[in-house]
Every structure is written in structure tokens, then in C-alpha cells.
């Protein structure tokens, strides 16, 4: 366990000192500032737009954090053969995977926490400026939505670790991870469409394609599960069951991915 935390610590430090982080943070701050500037144009919808823009800014920043910094934290180890040095120490391959994941996870959490503070300040400021247009707004819903942005990127970080464990290049890891993310955020809509009556009118969708999409929908993470933007923006009720299911889904998905990654990684050879 000590080795896992030691590895997680250096991974976190390596990530948090990366200069790209400043760029990503500045971009997110710009989006928050932009939100304050343009909020007045929306009047009646200012509450909904504010929540939507803030959650989108957090999501966008998280995405950049995972793809531009997170990918390099593990894939570069393999790319540059730093892993030879690390594995020459008494660290098992499974410990390496969990250590790296925890480090990336901690890095994303700290970075998003910082942006979350700025996001709360933005929402708080606009809430004070336009209190009449924030009807139905709930801080609890906003916090839950922000928390699930973090859960979403925790799953994405596990995907990055998984692909890093099977490929030797950070570029391939990046391509696979982006593809998984794009499929993951759209898969729910595709499945809904195929099950809807509109799809019955489409002749080109064969049964085999439908089966294939069904299988893919179970394998690819459904990122829509972690999207609470609608509830947060419109002040809708979020049931504890949905929170529990979404969180459980994320936790199970991460555990399975990391176990698979550990299994593959322990059989892998490092030339």
C-alpha cells in the first residue's frame, strides 16, 4: 500500500506542476468571466444559462485535464521507458496501475476543486445580481451536478489507464480515449433512438447492427448517466436512488477497468 501511495504522490506532483494546467485553468476562468459578462443578455433564463455554462466549463476543463495531462502521466512512462526504473523497485504491476490511477484521480480532483470554487463564486455573484431569475435554483443540485462531473472524469481517467496498459504510445492512448469518450456521451441517445418508433421506419438498420450497438452500449461507459445539468439548471428533483445508481455504476466501471488493466499489465513485456 505504501508503494501505491508513493507512486500516486509522484504522479500527482508530476501532473499538478505541468504547465498545461495553467492554460486549462485560464481557459476555464475565461469561460466563467464570459458567463458573468453575457449573463445579462438572457434575463429570464439567466439562472439556467449560468448553471449550464458553469457545468460546461467544468466539463470542458476536466476533459482537457484528462486528455492533455492525464494521458501523459502514465503513457509517457511507457513511451520514455521511465517504467523500467520504476518497476526495478519492489512494485508489482498491479500496484503500478492503482498507484498511477490514484495519482491521476487526485490530480483531477484537486484541479477541478479549484475550478469548482471559482464556479461557485460566479454562480453566487450572478445569483446576487439577478435573484429574481434564479427561481428553482438549488445549491444542492448544483453541487451534485459538479460532483458527477468529477465522477465522469474519474471514469475517463480509468479508461486512459486501461488504454495505456495495452498500448506503447501516448498518441494511441489519446486517440482510443477520445473515441471512447465520444461514443460514451452519445451511446445513450443512439440506443434510445433505435428503440423508438422512429427507427422502425428506417430500413437500413439491420437486426445485426442493432445487436452490435446493444453489445457496445454495455461495454462503453454511458457518460450520460453522470450528466445532471438538466436537473441542476431547472431545479428538478434528484432522487437518492439515481445518485446511488450513477455513483455505483461509475465505481464498478472504474474497478473493472483497473482490474482488467492490472491483469493485462502484469502479462505485458517492456522492451
Amino acid at each position: 500500500m505504501k508503494s501505491v501511495f508513493a507512486l500516486a504522490t509522484i504522479t500527482y506532483k508530476e501532473g499538478i506542476r505541468n504547465r498545461s494546467l495553467f492554460g486549462i485553468a485560464l481557459l476555464a476562468l475565461f469561460l466563467f468571466g464570459f458567463n458573468i459578462t453575457v449573463a445579462g443578455f438572457f434575463m429570464r433564463d439567466v439562472g439556467k444559462v449560468t448553471v449550464d455554462m458553469n457545468l460546461s466549463a467544468l466539463s470542458f476543463a476536466g476533459l482537457l485535464l484528462v486528455f492533455f495531462v492525464g494521458v501523459n502521466l502514465m503513457a509517457k512512462d511507457i513511451d520514455r521507458k521511465t517504467i523500467h526504473l520504476v518497476l526495478s523497485k519492489p512494485i508489482s504491476r498491479a500496484q503500478y496501475i492503482w498507484g498511477k490511477y490514484l495519482g491521476i484521480q487526485f490530480f483531477i480532483s484537486v484541479s477541478l476543486l479549484l475550478l469548482f470554487v471559482f464556479s461557485c463564486l460566479t454562480v453566487g455573484l450572478l445569483l446576487n445580481l439577478y435573484p429574481n431569475y434564479f427561481i428553482g435554483f438549488s445549491w444542492t443540485n448544483f453541487f451534485i451536478a459538479c460532483f458527477f462531473v468529477l465522477v465522469k472524469f474519474s471514469v475517463l481517467a480509468a479508461i486512459v489507464v486501461f488504454f495505456s496498459s495495452i498500448t506503447s504510445s501516448s498518441l494511441i492512448t489519446l486517440i482510443f480515449s477520445i473515441s471512447s469518450y465520444v461514443v460514451g456521451i452519445t451511446i445513450e441517445e443512439v440506443v434510445f433512438y433505435l428503440r423508438s418508433e422512429f427507427s422502425a421506419q428506417e430500413k437500413i438498420i439491420s437486426e445485426s447492427l442493432q445487436t452490435f450497438i446493444d453489445i457496445v452500449s454495455y461495454m462503453i461507459p454511458n457518460f450520460a448517466v453522470f450528466d445532471f445539468t438538466l436537473e441542476a439548471a431547472h431545479g428538478l428533483v434528484i432522487t437518492s436512488q439515481r445518485i446511488f445508481l450513477s455513483f455505483g455504476y461509475g465505481a464498478i466501471y472504474i474497478s473493472i477497468l483497473l482490474m482488467l488493466a492490472s491483469l493485462i499489465f502484469s502479462r505485458r513485456e517492456f522492451n
Binding site: 505504501k2 508503494s3 501511495f5 509522484i10 506532483k13 506542476r17 520514455r80 521511465t82 526504473l85
Partner: peptide, 19 residues
């Protein structure tokens, strides 16, 4: 040897010792 760019030597040695 390719070492971690953003770590200091002290941090690297601390990692080595802990593991």
C-alpha cells in the same frame, strides 16, 4: 535514464526509499 521532469531529486529519492 528518463526521470520525471517536474519532480526534484529529493522527491525522486523519497519515492525510491518509500517503495
Amino acid at each position: 535514464p528518463y526521470l520525471y521532469d517536474h519532480l526534484t531529486l529529493l522527491e525522486l529519492l523519497s519515492f525510491c526509499g518509500q517503495t
